[in-house]
Design a protein around this nucleic acid. Structure first.
Lengths: 415, 415
DNA sequence: AGCACTTATTAAAAAAATTTAAAAAGTATA
DNA sequence: TATACTTTTTAAATTTTTTTAATAAGTGCT
């Protein structure tokens, strides 16, 4: 017992060094000392140990800033791996990343319907286990499994109230038990948000709103530098705010929701109707095409200059802009990021959004918020999932390869 | 130099003990140890010193929870004082509180027009200095001066972009220089929010939205347990979100703002018009009455059962409810508090607000947010201002009565 | 090229904080 | 009423962390 707490204490610093290096890629001893508010000798000692344990490696010297050049340290990429899972209503992607966020194998994409599918959860667990087995990575080398999923999610308790019914048991606990690695879940839009804030276009912004433009319209919020999920994890229900009097009927049962007026699904619907009504367009449509195919076609056509497609997207953009005006008034963020699938037509949406902001916002507020377009694209959710895992790295005590060994030695020598 | 950091370190713990005791009134050594995450001996030693220095006193024993009764400590109320200033467009209140939040003298209220008044700032400084002088309290016994004011405020930098022009200099620095005590400023609605969360009906709630119902409609936000002010301090501009298509013209120049439809000022206007049009009501009105008198009369009449007044307030309440629906969707708060002057008709507003929420909110979201009515009333802003000062207590190094003495001794003995 | 000035790393000394153990003060129960 | 069990407080020993000082490595100017 005596040694336990001591080791845990010292492991605390080591874990926060690992976490820091994951986010900042390469730091000197002095940098780490400053950012972690620990003395240089403490950090230096911890780093030496981390190198011995194989978690950290030297990366070379950084340019001098007027004195001795600092020796930079980075993570040993193959020291541990992160399993990232990104789900949507129809399909699930699984990937494994090393500590430099590089994929170590092909992303596997599988059909997995969430709606009304009692088999979804056991299948998900099976797919994850198969993927890990196929990768050949040992379970104790897995930092954690991060899963992004749609639905009303309580990250802290590990529940999804919309999909993947787990009969009252915590999803995270259940999956962790069956896979042998710690599990973290979060809403897909939240994950895109932390991806943009840690490794994307809004890097290090303290207050960011990330719009997940997809078949629905999601919102991930970074507030005071950290993810905000609300009292019960439902914050960011942006797409169902009452925005238009007597608007279109929404799937949620109400009228005038943003989603029912401006989501890609609605744009696709309008396109199909428009073509039927004889609109001139490069778009071709057979009634059998699912909305998603149409949606992708519209975005592509718009980027190629198709006037009808641009018109449809502009209309949606203006409505999104009105909603963003509300968001800006309430949150006064440093930046708003257009992310998700829709980000590829971000440039087209920019003008009508800006137009709506000018109309509906107090000038001082618009000018203090930057409107950005994601560059992370389709990868955002996977990266966000990895961030989710690493964010929790120093909370749950992970780096125990050494700790546990020493502990058991201690115990045997005492008994 | 050598000793300096050491003393500052030990003072850090003492300061956080003082801060903690300010908020929690009375705690045992064990409580403090747990909440501050410091060992019992460290805390015990710090408390002994704080008692010697006159900051802390014993308060007696708390009931046992199955073992030795804990000795409770509280702040020596007269050890230090907080100056609180609450401003609105027309008048300014000044008060001094001891460390138990008890006023040590009458609140002084002075006429002080903010709009278009270049003399406002020097007058404010004069009033504060006069008040402190009259109180007989020495400057070095003043923890700080907290000032709540309307306008677009950047608390961190100390600017008010709407009133009290300080020619590019930081307001807080300027006033601090002229008064000889640290100064903190914040938006009035923000202060009401922290008052409600620390000492009011939303005590210890992590995520709270506080609606400041007054002549305008303000919003103070507590997010992840702390005040959220946005990237440039403008968060919570609730009253100018675009809510109604083609609504009434607002002072901000736009149409359809909540403030232009549901503030007490608008209710008063409607009442005057309604009486002219022959509505039956206990309200009597002469054209000379300013809106504020009418507004107060309406609230009183409504509380006495006047049907016309209730109708007017209900109408406003429904519109506020629609705006709150938006807020709930975005923030998913633990509670929403109706505070400010309008809180006295809170019960009347409750029904129409709830009605609007039911119509415009996703059911799961409404049911996870509590709607509360403030009990702090007119005092909320003054209390919030005191909280603002004490919130910063451990950041800026205050408790130096001992520190500075030891430092100078050290210096002389070394030189 | 040499000198003054920065910056980074390492090692030894000093200080601070925590753990451990023990005593004190109560409660609940047989 | 004595005994077992809790909880708080105090004191001593140990660990951890930070200072301090010394060394190493570079920059930039004269």
């Amino acid at each position: 017992m005596e040694l336990k707490t001591r080791i845990v204490k010292s492991a605390e610093l080591k874990n926060s060094i690992i976490k820091r290096l994951y986010f900042d890629k390469a730091l000197s001893c002095a940098d780490l000392s400053e950012v972690l508010e620990k003395s240089v000798p403490s950090v230096s000692k911890a780093i030496t140990e981390l190198i011995e344990e194989g978690f950290v490696m030297e990366q070379g010297y950084a340019p001098s800033s007027g004195g001795r050049r600092p020796l930079m340290y980075c993570l040993q990429p193959s020291a541990m791996y992160i399993v990232t899972v990104a789900m949507d209503q129809l399909s699930t992607r699984i990937q494994m990343l090393d500590l430099h966020n590089n994929p170590i194998a092909e992303t596997v994409m599988t059909e997995l319907k969430l709606f009304n599918n009692p088999k979804a959860l056991p299948l998900l667990i099976e797919y994850i286990n198969d993927y890990i087995d196929a990768s050949g990575v040992a379970r104790d080398k897995i930092v954690g499994i991060g899963i992004g999923m749609p639905g009303f999610i309580d990250s802290a308790k590990g529940f999804n109230y919309t999909y993947l019914d787990s009969a009252g048991q915590s999803l995270t606990e259940l999956i962790a038990e069956k896979t042998g690695a710690p599990v973290y879940i979060a809403n897909d839009s939240s994950l895109i948000a932390i991806a943009e804030q840690k490794f994307g276009i809004a890097k290090n912004h303290r207050d960011v709103m990330v719009i997940n433009l997809g078949w629905g319209i999601g919102l991930g919020m970074i507030v005071n530098g950290e993810l905000y999920s609300g009292h019960s994890g439902f914050a960011g229900e942006f797409s169902h705010i009452p925005l238009f009097d007597d608007g279109a009927l929404c799937t949620c049962g109400k009228r005038g929701c943003l989603e029912a007026e401006a989501s890609m699904l609605v744009v696709a619907e309008k396109a199909i109707q428009g073509i039927k009504d004889g609109h001139i367009s490069s778009l071709k449509h057979t009634d059998k095409d699912p909305y998603k195919v149409v949606g992708n076609a519209i975005m592509e056509a718009a980027n190629n200059g198709d006037q009808f497609a641009i018109e449809l997207l502009s209309d949606a953009g203006y409505k999104i802009g009105k909603a963003l005006a509300i968001l800006i008034h309430i949150m006064n963020p440093e930046s708003i990021v257009l992310s998700g699938r829709g980000a590829i037509v971000g440039k087209i949406l920019l003008a009508p959004i800006q137009q709506a902001l000018t109309k509906y916002c107090i000038p001082r507020l618009v000018s203090s918020t930057e409107l950005l377009i994601s560059a992370l694209g389709f990868n955002a959710e996977l990266i966000g999932t990895a961030v989710l895992v690493m964010e929790n790295f120093d909370k749950d005590n992970k780096n125990q390869s050494l700790t546990t060994k020493q502990l058991s030695m201690e115990k045997t020598s005492k008994n």
